Amino acid sequence: MRSLLYVMTALGVIGLAFWAYQENYRTQDSLKEVRQLNRQIASANARLRMLQAEWAYQNRPDRLRDLAELNFDRLGLLPLMPDGFGRVDQVAFPMVLPSELGRVIEVSSDGDAEVTE
């Protein structure tokens, strides 16, 4: 009976050693993956900082002003001036006729649209 207990204890220790061995290598693999992900995150953050700096450089007011002047004939852009802004009550909104508010547009499945008054 004692020898069976010794054999079972030895098998238990061997089993636990095998389990600990596997867990050790799984942990090392997980740590390698975490280090790799941290390197990727650091690289992505560095790229993001570089893109933000480039965005700020490209949107400098003096550069945009020069581009607006350079492409005035083609785009018709005017420089921003403090007196170039207005109030909302100065905007001329298009008039909506009451007859247009009551229009119903029925659309069928074959793509034909029908306007009813």
Rank of each mutant, 00 (worst) to 15 (best):
L16R: 06
N71K: 09
D73L: 08
Q36E: 11
R47Y: 06
F85R: 01
L70G: 04
N59P: 02
N45I: 03
M8D: 11
S43N: 00
R103K: 10
M81L: 14
S3N: 08
R65M: 09
R60S: 11
T9I: 15
G111I: 15
A10G: 05
L51W: 07
A56D: 09
R49G: 03
S108I: 03
R35P: 00
I105D: 07
R26M: 10
I105A: 09
G111A: 00
R2F: 03
L64F: 05
Q40W: 14
R65G: 04
R35L: 11
Q90R: 00
E106K: 06
V7P: 12
V7I: 15
V91Q: 13
L16P: 08
E114N: 02
M95A: 02
R47H: 10
L16K: 03
A56N: 15
Q58L: 14
R103V: 04
Y25D: 14
R63N: 12
L37I: 13
I14T: 11
L67V: 08
E23W: 09
M95I: 06
W19M: 14
Q40L: 10
E69G: 05
V34T: 04
Y57D: 07
V34G: 03
L16H: 01
A44M: 01
A10L: 15
L11A: 04
N38K: 01
V115K: 00
W55D: 02
D83V: 05
L51P: 04
L67K: 13
L11C: 13
G84L: 01
A53G: 08
F18G: 10
R47Q: 03
A46S: 14
E54W: 00
Y6T: 02
R47P: 00
R49D: 02
R2V: 02
R65E: 12
W19A: 12
N45A: 06
F85Y: 12
S3D: 10
E54K: 07
L37W: 07
S99C: 11
P82C: 06
A56P: 01
M8T: 15
